[in-house]
Amino acid sequence: MLIEVDGLEKAYGQGAERQPVLRGVSLGLEPGASLAVTGESGSGKSTLLHLIGLLDTPDAGEIRLKGETVTGLDDAGRALRRRHQVGLVFQQFNLVPSLTVEGNLALQARLAGQHDAEWIDTLADRLGLAAFRQRYPEQLSGGQQQRVAVGRALAARPALLLADEPTGNLDEETSDQVLDLMLELCADAGAGLIMATHSRIAADRLSRRVHLTGGRLS
């Protein structure tokens, strides 16, 4: 198994105002497989992805990445695995505005010490970014920016790609293109994909789908 999630619980807030967000979520993902997480706003989709992406720690439960339990790791340990194993396409982890498209594409790979110029070229071509490589993010449209984010997430050849509403801000046509590319590249790279979305159409394109309601899977 690529990812095993077992009984995850997470709550936010203090004391009486403490709001449980996840109440015992368990799931698994094989290498190369894809999983859509759907649910209403506030159902805990993002939180689940944050926990799996090692951006946050659960209150209870366990996550195993390639068989290794990662829930007890310290900050540096989680950073190491994020760098090497996980690709993120989140809305709030925008592109670095002061780096060019090319710089953004290569950023994670460079951080992980796995920079591969050929692979970056391939990604840029496949993502239709070849003509924009020297541009800055602010000079790109939203769809182009999101394609750069996808490329950046895959540049270090992660085992797992996490995408949180990757097409949320895009029109239908553009989101189809981005989604196609993401799936295609994941398949080519042999990466597992977990994507949070509230779009059924998008969710249907993935191999499996789970639905979150009130912090529980259904």
């Binding site: 992406g53 951006l55 900050d75 540096a76 950073a79 190491l80 695995r81 994020r82 760098r83 090497h84 996980v86 993120l88 989140f90 709030q92 982890f93 925008n94 592109l95 670095v96 505005p97 002061s98 950023l107 994670q108 951080l111 992980a112 950046r152």
Partner: peptide, 15 residues
Amino acid sequence: RSTLRTLRALGTPVR
């Protein structure tokens, strides 16, 4: 700030 957060998310340790 956003650049710093992105770097952290992409696995750059705090130190």
